[in-house]
Design a binder for these strands. Structure first.
Lengths: 141, 141
DNA sequence: GTAATTCCTCTAGTAACTAGAGGTTCAAGA
DNA sequence: TCTTGAACCTCTAGTTACTAGAGGAATTAC
């Protein structure tokens, strides 16, 4: 049986965050000691690893919950897992392409007046001037 | 003089968000009509464009505030603007590289059991298994 | 036995908005 | 001038995914 601190150290998820996941229903309520402290087993440890990995991959908690609910599912239900992975991938690619155009523009801005910024700085101007952007850029997420 | 709705339509910033920015001190409190409605001038319009552009570039509001406070500044103060642009650029590049490694992994996961997902799905397995990752990936932002 | 560490619950705060309730003002047409 | 509908007002509360802190109890190490 593991304490919450042990879980935290081994998964890299902070202690308050573990409690937060419990609150949200992502982790089942664990057994408690006589003194009311949480004690976890290996199943909980694995589940927390799973959550952490999904979060690292950028999945929102709602999707993680969806995946967790598929545990032990079979057949058609598993299409949901594929769908989540696919959706996430598309989202990721979109984010990357948008960030790349932002990178191009920031590079432009940063170089705008290298060194020689006297009285009216081109950087400030560039931040304010949308018209110089290479392409359209939606709100970054 | 422009209404808040006009500002919204012309900058693409939603009406409640404009009020929010005013609350946060990013936009000065505008004049009001006898009936207490906000009326803006061109200066406010430009300022809002500036804010929006910065937000599109991914700057947090705190940084936007910093840039706005540099208005009319000269000499050394302008280094701050460069610093913000540079910092933002570094952050962006970091995000892009992390997202790219996530993309690689999600691609792997998505292909894990194409079509043939019978009873224990590789996708679910892959989501839970950190050890198969190509490289380390910190929490995506 | 005692001291240090870890744990408990609870509230509130973060960023950057968004949504809704309930009510007022403005602008345009009849 | 009157009326109607759109746009405006303030205020509260909700969103996501945590994080921080207060005040106190339990556990662990020596």
């Amino acid at each position: 049986m593991y304490s919450i601190g042990y879980l935290s150290r081994h998964t890299g998820v902070k202690v308050p965050t573990i409690r937060f996941y419990e609150d949200k229903g992502l982790l089942p309520r664990p057994d408690r000691t006589a003194g009311n402290q949480r004690r976890y087993d290996d199943t909980a440890l694995k589940r927390l690893f799973f959550i952490r990995h999904c979060r690292d991959l950028g999945l929102p908690l709602a999707d993680v919950e969806g995946l967790l609910s598929l545990e032990g599912a079979s057949g058609g239900d598993l299409n949901q897992a594929h769908e989540i992975a696919g959706r996430q991938l598309a989202d990721l690619r979109d984010r990357i392409s948008r960030l790349r155009s932002l990178e191009a523009e920031l590079t432009r801005i940063s170089k705008a007046c290298d060194g020689k910024h006297d009285h009216v700085c081109a950087v400030l101007h560039a931040f304010g001037d949308h018209s110089e952007c290479a392409g359209p850029h939606a709100h970054s997420k």
